[in-house]
Write a protein that binds this DNA or RNA. Structure first.
Lengths: 257, 257
DNA sequence: CAGTGGTCTAGACCACAGT
DNA sequence: CTGTGGTCTAGACCACTGC
């Protein structure tokens, strides 16, 4: 053993097989369409049981690197996955990780019926009573984000009595209501009159707009529209599905222009 | 068997266990922090081998619903995963899925040394010769997207001779060069002078700006900055990592306001 | 120290799709 | 028909860690 293998936490065999094959693919030695040896062949090669190989291959399929067909075999995938994992932090966490003091204030709060024209906001489409809020989030002394939120009171009746002073609606929901799915829509928009007033930005200045719809099983839970002023805010999405956190990675060490 | 179970493709046992437990968690019956029965207990309950349970639990950990600690046991995760899968389509695909005719044109193209101030664009930071391009993508008769791209010629020497007329650089790279990771940064920005001219938009109008850095193993491959005019363009990110494709889902059936 | 998860085995049966 | 993946079993050993 060399000194180079410092504190190697004994990677499991299926992990090593996975890394080997992923390495062959990512390096280009196994081009798109390449026929990967069968599980039995690989098991023989690695001197292990077939199930150990199977575990590695299953994970490679999940990552989109490999496609498998019965009887035909396993092949390097041709559809290079054009998806990435988008990390959507809690706003408080986000602000505090910038080293700033977080604070939020409830600008408006009402319990009312869902209005016409808001039907498409909740998903699946819903009607009935909702809690509707406008929330402003601050980073230090500056407005950081303006949030419009609707909470379905049919899904979350306890939201009717919550004052959301200690904890903002988003965080409150996250720790209170279980949810099974969410959809985010991200776009750029010019500041409208309300944003100009509440975020203290110039009219029509560019803003990042994030709409989030959350549901549980087949019931709508909440809708949120988050507006971040200017180009000060950015989202980061990384590819490589939990690819064992490349320590020497590009995530650090370069400034954003 | 009831008539309701139509064409059920015999879900595997570990899948059924997974669905059961996910159902308990997502419905709230098992709240955050709930102690999930041990693998042995579950195996007894389901009358199966421990490994079958293990497979389900491992997947639940991957999805962020469950945390496991040795000796202590398995618990419903408190950190509800705030990540989503962002789908980043190829521009041509995107345009054509809108029912429009796609076209791209190379506005500028040079092989040159990487300039000072561009050092942070490639990741890991690199120097040396690059192919630098400005590309304009059209949807029908309208400009759709402006792309600034840098390709490392050390990683992709064959990019020096490619004309990128038949196929745009992004698509060409996707089908030519294997890559292991990518990072996207998404933000809103006002249109600068170049964007105003080439995308035919008003000065300072809001644009969606996507920067993509791609690398292979530990070598930088390419950098791309894509600018989409106005609020016409949006990205969509869905939560629930391949959560067995909710057919009756919110992905369809509601118009975007 | 004992219970838990993490891993691995050497088999087995089956479904399925190419040949 | 046959080779492939997909699943499952009934064990086993180990590492860790909370009791």
């Amino acid at each position: 053993m060399t000194a180079a293998s410092r504190a190697a936490p004994a990677p499991s065999l299926h992990q090593r097989i996975l890394d080997d094959i992923a390495g062959h693919i990512l390096s280009g030695r196994w081009p798109v369409g390449h026929h990967i040896p069968s599980e039995l062949e690989l098991a023989t090669r690695y001197g292990c049981a077939r199930m150990t190989v199977s575990k590695a291959m299953t994970e490679l399929v999940r990552r989109g690197l490999v496609e498998r067909r019965r009887r035909a075999g396993s092949f390097v995938s041709r559809t290079r996955s054009r998806s990435a994992v988008l990390d959507i932090p809690d706003i408080r966490t986000e602000v505090e990780s910038l080293g700033l003091v977080y604070r939020h204030e409830i600008l408006q709060s009402r319990c009312r019926m869902l209005q016409r024209g808001e039907a498409g906001l909740l998903v699946p489409a819903a009607a009935g009573r909702v809690r509707a809020l406008w929330v402003r989030h601050h980073a230090g002394s500056r407005p950081f984000c303006l949030e419009f939120r609707i909470i379905s009171l049919e899904s979350v009746p306890e939201a009717a009595d919550e004052r959301f002073e200690a904890v903002a609606p988003g965080a409150w929901l996250a720790q209170t209501v279980p949810w099974s799915g969410a959809e985010h829509r991200i776009q750029a928009a010019g500041a409208d009159e309300r944003i100009v007033r509440w975020l203290e930005v110039a009219p029509q200045s560019p803003c990042l707009l994030i709409e989030r719809r959350t549901w549980r099983q087949d019931v709508a839970v909440t809708f949120a529209r988050l507006v971040y002023p200017g180009d000060a805010h950015q989202l980061i999405a990384r590819f490589s599905p939990d690819m064992t956190h490349r320590a020497t990675g590009p995530a650090s060490g370069h400034g954003i222009p």
